[in-house]
Simulated assay, not measured.
Amino acid sequence: MFSKSNLLATLVGAIVMFFLGYLIWGIATVDFFEQHTVVNVMKEVPNMGLIALANLIAVFALSTLYSKWARGHHSAGQGFQFGVWIGIFIGLGMGLLNYATANFMDMTGHIVEAIIDIVFFGIIGAVISLVYQKTATKE
């Protein structure tokens, strides 16, 4: 669990998750999601330290799960596929659950969020996989 590969994948993945997340949700899609928000529950100024910590914890969990899932065979494609399944779980599974139980966004917002989650976590999975591939022990 605390292997060199896992810790490096966690560090690199968390950095990518933080900055890519900011580019996607903090810049590129802000106007879109404002139009599809039903009840705005966002803080005026987000706590960037807690966001960074949350990303670190999330990527540690993803990296640990990926290491079990990959079974020593690492490629960007396999990592992307792993991330896509995570994105489906979060974006579609949890997103539709949120739509069914809360007034956060309209259906269009949730569908777009699901698509973004699938691609976003696919990229994170590919990054994790590439770090594992580069740090794997040579036989």
Score class of each variant (00 low, 15 high):
residue 1 M to H: 12
residue 1 M to A: 12
residue 1 M to Q: 12
residue 3 S to C: 08
residue 3 S to Q: 10
residue 4 K to W: 06
residue 5 S to V: 06
residue 7 L to W: 02
residue 10 T to Y: 03
residue 11 L to E: 04
residue 13 G to N: 00
residue 17 M to D: 11
residue 18 F to G: 06
residue 18 F to C: 05
residue 19 F to R: 12
residue 20 L to V: 11
residue 21 G to M: 03
residue 23 L to H: 04
residue 23 L to Y: 04
residue 24 I to N: 13
residue 26 G to K: 07
residue 27 I to W: 12
residue 28 A to D: 07
residue 28 A to M: 14
residue 31 D to M: 08
residue 33 F to P: 07
residue 34 E to I: 04
residue 35 Q to T: 14
residue 38 V to L: 15
residue 38 V to P: 09
residue 38 V to S: 14
residue 39 V to M: 13
residue 39 V to P: 12
residue 42 M to C: 05
residue 44 E to D: 14
residue 45 V to C: 03
residue 46 P to S: 13
residue 47 N to H: 13
residue 50 L to S: 12
residue 50 L to N: 15
residue 52 A to G: 02
residue 53 L to D: 13
residue 53 L to N: 13
residue 54 A to D: 15
residue 54 A to N: 15
residue 55 N to K: 09
residue 58 A to Q: 11
residue 58 A to K: 08
residue 59 V to F: 02
residue 60 F to Q: 03
residue 61 A to M: 13
residue 62 L to K: 07
residue 63 S to Q: 03
residue 64 T to L: 11
residue 65 L to F: 15
residue 66 Y to T: 03
residue 67 S to V: 05
residue 68 K to L: 15
residue 69 W to E: 10
residue 70 A to C: 08
residue 70 A to I: 04
residue 72 G to A: 06
residue 73 H to W: 07
residue 73 H to Y: 14
residue 76 A to W: 12
residue 76 A to E: 11
residue 77 G to P: 09
residue 78 Q to P: 06
residue 79 G to D: 08
residue 80 F to W: 06
residue 81 Q to G: 13
residue 81 Q to D: 04
residue 81 Q to V: 10
residue 82 F to M: 06
residue 83 G to K: 00
residue 84 V to F: 01
residue 86 I to F: 01
residue 87 G to Q: 02
residue 87 G to W: 00
residue 88 I to R: 08
residue 89 F to E: 02
residue 92 L to H: 06
residue 93 G to W: 01
residue 93 G to L: 03
residue 94 M to H: 14
residue 95 G to L: 03
residue 96 L to H: 07
residue 97 L to M: 10
residue 99 Y to L: 09
residue 101 T to D: 11
residue 103 N to K: 12
residue 105 M to Y: 01
residue 107 M to N: 04
residue 107 M to K: 09
residue 109 G to R: 00
residue 110 H to T: 05
residue 111 I to Y: 06
residue 112 V to N: 02
residue 114 A to R: 00
residue 116 I to H: 07
residue 116 I to M: 10
residue 117 D to T: 13
residue 118 I to W: 01
residue 119 V to D: 01
residue 119 V to F: 02
residue 120 F to Y: 15
residue 120 F to R: 07
residue 120 F to H: 13
residue 120 F to M: 10
residue 122 G to R: 00
residue 122 G to V: 01
residue 124 I to S: 01
residue 125 G to R: 00
residue 125 G to K: 00
residue 127 V to Y: 01
residue 127 V to N: 07
residue 130 L to E: 11
residue 132 Y to I: 02
residue 132 Y to N: 04
residue 133 Q to F: 10
residue 133 Q to S: 11
residue 137 T to E: 14
residue 139 E to D: 13
